[in-house]
Amino acid sequence: MDADARLAALIAARATAAGVAWLDRAVDAVATGAAAIATLFPAAARHVGRGGLDAPGATLRAPTGEEVPLAAWRVDDAARVRLLLAAGRRDPAGALALADDLYRHGDARERTGALRALSFLPCAATDAAALPAVQDAMRASQGELFEAGICENPYASRHLPQHDWHKAALKVAFVGLALERVVGLAARADAAFAQSLVDLACEREAATRPVPPAMWPIAARFPPPGLAAKLLGYLEHPSPDHRAAAAAALAALVATDPRVRPFLADRAAREPVPAIRQTLSRAVEA
């Protein structure tokens, strides 16, 4: 089943029959050039709805190979992706520039839809025409818009220059989104990015504000001085999220810093959460 058919099926499970019929007509009209996407794109939500797509665990395969999770998508996002896919069938080379234009003229929901479409459009691997839209979303202060720009978005991760990617991924951690939602995080993270994460943790600790735990496994790949001691402290944190992240990070550190091993063993003996205990025990044995 291609991306369009798969989205159509997911939408059909959530929208009314009239809404589905409207969308099918709109998709045909865009694909044949009979109607302008510029006025159909904003109208989509009124026909298909705005609720969650409600497809936890569902993914959509991008032409570049990534399986993109749809958990954060709404029904109108899926409908707008269908419209852009139709435009892409009509004019493959212009699809990403069109998505950028629709983003530029869209409200927050339309912009989110345009961003979610980027990875599925023709030439997504090579055409950076929609990069300005992603860069705009990076600067957005509206949660869902920012999220659609950088989370589960292979197009963004592929085309953002390193400096922009660094700032966008750091903002993911800063606003409390899960870092692992950034596609290709491991591949693009470098020492400078890891340092930014550690600086964020220090800033939060100084302000007695919460630290996003997901940063530690990334930081551990490029450990600054003192990281091991800081993580060992988090191993005693009352929150299992913090202990789990610290354990995963320390498991990566133990190969280069064997001093931490006895502390991992000590905690493993007292750790009540089985998954964390297992991470610690494996690290001790490694």
Partner: peptide, 14 residues
């Protein structure tokens, strides 16, 4: 709480 997932992104939610 969030409306359409929105919250001004100044990190205060973290």
């Amino acid at each position: 709480e969030l409306w359409q997932g929105n919250s001004i992104l100044r990190g205060q939610g973290a």
